[in-house]
Design a protein around this nucleic acid. Structure first.
Lengths: 194, 194, 194, 194
DNA sequence: CATGAATGAGTATTCATTCAT
DNA sequence: AATGAATGAATACTCATTCAT
């Protein structure tokens, strides 16, 4: 008996996910340029040919990986937005971000390695900028609620601390005092006043 | 008659410099992996063979580029340390760093692209960590002078802001409010008090 | 539908054989060092990439060629051992060897060019010595049967004549009196006495 | 004071000799194809440029090495011819050849590696054949004196034993019973009768 | 005579991608 | 949907040789 259309759809979706996850892992471990399509197929447990049925180039696969990672981050942030009212979100946002960071290194390392590769940032740069702006927007809303004087500038500043902390942590996870740094961020930006 | 040793030395030094600068420019523009050795030679205006006469592999050339960039940064920082007494250095250090950033984008972009490439960071990572620690040490000395309570943590924090600001600026130079951010850093960390 | 495993096996076996034979021909004609991988692929009528799909380096291919040639020689010798009882084998062994020589020059020329290349003999030398010893062993068994006084020394001597004759023949096939030399060998070593 | 013409001549001759000897050593150790001209110059203690003043190509240098080696062998053989009357030369010739072999491995190894390299034998083959014929001629004269029935065939045979012995010795110097083999040759061919 | 900087064609090898089955 | 054989352009690197000084 042939598979139903629905079954086929599901198989397709699962296979796509397997491929994307394998690619993500490898891109994060060895970088985009030095990861071969063959190794991705092997890691995903299927043939090169089949992989090309799902993604018709290495570049397309890169976009899929990027979307996958971004979706995960969005998810975490959205969860905070849904469960906490404006004005109380900042500490939760920060904790959510840094929990994701400490529990899933590769995730962020990948993001930064993509962003800083000129060849890649040419094509992904706009997307990065938009997503950065969106998250910074979340921060700003909170800073407005907190009654900061210049919330936009503060948001830029806060966002910089966050990014810098992520980078420093990735460079030296063993020594970076992440917990204290997060507390300090909250103390500086999460209070009700200037 | 052969050239004198001194003449050869000079030729060698000049050619080496030409190659390193060309490589730096290209690595910064297109990334290490996607830059071909041929393109470096062409950019430097010499033959592939000659390039290999000076650097016996693309990897060695990368290290030379890294050293070159680092030397430039050290230079700027050292200049500040020499011309300003402890306790007054922070504002000048920050200005020096961000002046270098705005005047020479590629410089820093290159450093970050190297640092975030897994294949490269494996071999350059220790060096990065040491240099990071050294600069953070400079910050801490100033924070001690400023009478901060927990200068080490503050130094980590400040260093994170700096790194984050650099990253954000590189992502979107046109919109990032660099000048104000720097002023804010100085206001937060450069004062004589907490 | 994909090919069956059996089909693939056959394709693989045939392609491998084609490559090995082309390589053998070229190595014999122009030497290992001066034969390019590209020329092997062209001679075999396939792409460079495919050749590397089957042999991951020129060196590996060399070993395969070596094994191929050796297998052919073993075959010829084994055939004699199977069809003739001890004590009567010497004349047949010698004829078999020199028939193979006159019918397939390149075969032996290749072996000698490999054996005398320092870079190659480093890695293939042991194999050569073992195979030499084995064949000399066959000779000795016959000399024992023939009642020779010092069969081991005689075997060394005979083996030397054989090798020297091969060499001389290869150097000047048109003039070397191979047939008479073989008869003389048989007269000297194949008789029932002395 | 400038050097006299004679002094210059001598310096030239010495430098040429140094280069040839270095080349010989390296060709013998690593093979012609895998020896670089640069390594020869370095081994000889002079610059690449200067080496090219003496030999205008790697191939010319090869010929010079070949001549050098051949001259050495000629020398040894001539010495025997001069000091021993026809009819008594065979034992001395054989001893001379095998003494040279055991005392100077590389010498002969080089010769065989050259002879068996197709690319090289194309150009050196005639010379090899002539020299082989000359030495075989010496053998034949002796065999005529010894009253052998078919001295030409015997000479071919003897020459084959000699060559085979050299090869076998080079393949496994530690185990080949050279001394006994030589004695056996002399016993077989050096006697006054058939 | 002497140096070593400079050249560039040539080499082994890799890898994204296609395609017959 | 599935396989892996097949392609060939591209890449890092080498090396005989030349040439300005």
């Amino acid at each position: 008996m042939p598979r139903t259309t629905a079954q086929n759809e599901q198989i397709r979706a699962e296979t796509r996910a397997t491929i994307v996850e394998s690619a993500m892992r490898l891109f994060a471990q060895k970088g985009y340029a030095t990861t071969t399509t063959r190794s991705i197929a092997t890691e995903a447990g299927l043939s090169v040919g089949l992989m090309y049925h799902y993604f018709d180039s290495k570049e397309r696969l890169l976009y899929a990986v990027f979307d996958f990672v971004m979706a995960r981050i969005d998810e975490v942030i959205t969860a905070v937005l849904l469960t906490h009212p404006p004005g109380e979100r900042l500490p939760h946002l920060l904790h959510a971000i840094f929990d994701l960071l400490t529990s899933q290194h590769e995730f962020w390392g990948l993001l930064y390695s993509l962003r800083t590769q000129p060849a890649i940032s040419v094509v992904l740069g706009d997307d990065f900028r938009q997503r950065t702006a969106a998250l910074r927007g979340c921060f700003m809303d909170e800073l407005v609620h907190a009654g900061k004087e210049n919330p936009q500038l503060e948001a830029y500043y806060l966002y910089s601390v966050v990014e810098g902390a992520i980078q420093q942590y990735l460079l030296d996870p063993a020594n970076y005092p992440m917990a204290e740094i997060v507390e300090k961020m909250i103390a500086q930006f999460g209070g009700k006043q200037t």
